[in-house]
Amino acid sequence: MKKIVFIGAGSMAEALMQGWIKQNVLTAQEIYITNRSDKERLQFLHETYGVNKVDDPAIYQQADVIILAMKPKDAIVAMRELKSKITAQSAVVSVLAGVSIETITHFLGDRPIARVMPNTSATIGMSASGIAFNDKVSATQRSMFLELLEAIGSVIEVNEDQLHAVTALSGSGPAYIYYLMEAFERVGTKVGLSKDTVRLLMTQTLAGSAEMLKQSTDEPDVLRKKVTSPGGTTEAGIQALEQHHFHEAIEACIKEAEARSRSLANG
């Protein structure tokens, strides 16, 4: 039986543990959770998913993997407290935006470390994750980390510097899609449809478009042009997006998020 210990119990920790339990990769009994002070949150996760609260410090010594999932602003204090509790062999997986392997090594010592940027779609087994390893991660550990992430979606190995871009794109990506859906629902009700109707139409449209991109060998611009008849409604909509600088807005969004990830890394 594995022992996976989460330091931090926020939305990403919940998404990962829920996804792993749902996909039968880990049992609730293999997962332990702790945080600095929110005992109600720990109790909620314990009652909801059956995971264990860390009541005995010996658990840290027995852990196969320590997952850093606290808020990035709390990371340094948490790692200082954690260092004396874990063994030199314990592997560390960080899901913290902007906190580098170098920083983790400084506070937790030279040990196997992986940085992962998943997203909250891990809850339903559809995360898009990027992962980077240090040279202390063994082949066995690498396989274990990849297996855990593949069970909750897609994973791609990148170099650590590329995790800033992964964070900006797929890590934050669900929020952008939900923000887009908010806009669809707002305008859809203005043009006479119910919110439920807009939700049904657009969730299926988004899902269908994503599946077309996965199954088709065509580039996105080719698929777009196949939908866009000259002088038609789609062309009118695309022209409006261009007039409102849609591409520039998306570029600004990603660049700002990527820059924020880098600024977190620089303290």
Rank of each mutant, 00 (worst) to 15 (best):
K3Q: 12
K3A: 11
V5C: 08
V5A: 08
G8I: 01
A28G: 14
N35A: 10
D38C: 06
K39I: 07
L42I: 13
H46S: 14
Y49Q: 13
N52H: 15
K53Y: 05
Q62F: 02
A63V: 06
V65F: 11
A69K: 10
A69V: 07
K71Y: 06
A75Y: 01
E81K: 13
S84N: 09
T87S: 15
A88R: 10
Q89V: 01
E102A: 13
F107N: 06
F107D: 06
G109A: 04
R111T: 02
I113E: 03
R115Q: 04
V116H: 03
M117F: 02
M117R: 04
A122N: 04
T123V: 07
M126F: 09
S127H: 09
A139N: 10
A139E: 10
Q141S: 12
M144F: 09
A151Y: 00
S154A: 12
E157K: 13
H164P: 05
T167E: 02
T167S: 13
L169R: 05
L169D: 02
A175D: 11
A175G: 15
Y178R: 12
Y178D: 13
L180P: 08
E182I: 00
E182Y: 14
F184H: 09
F184R: 06
E185W: 07
R186K: 14
T189A: 07
V191Y: 08
L193K: 08
K195A: 14
L200W: 06
T203P: 08
Q204L: 09
L206N: 07
A207W: 04
G208I: 03
A210W: 06
A210Y: 10
E211C: 07
E211W: 05
L213I: 02
L213F: 13
L223S: 03
P230M: 08
P230A: 10
G232I: 09
T233R: 03
E235V: 02
I238N: 07
Q239C: 03
F246M: 08
H247L: 07
A249L: 13
A249Q: 08
E251R: 14
I254C: 00
S261Q: 08
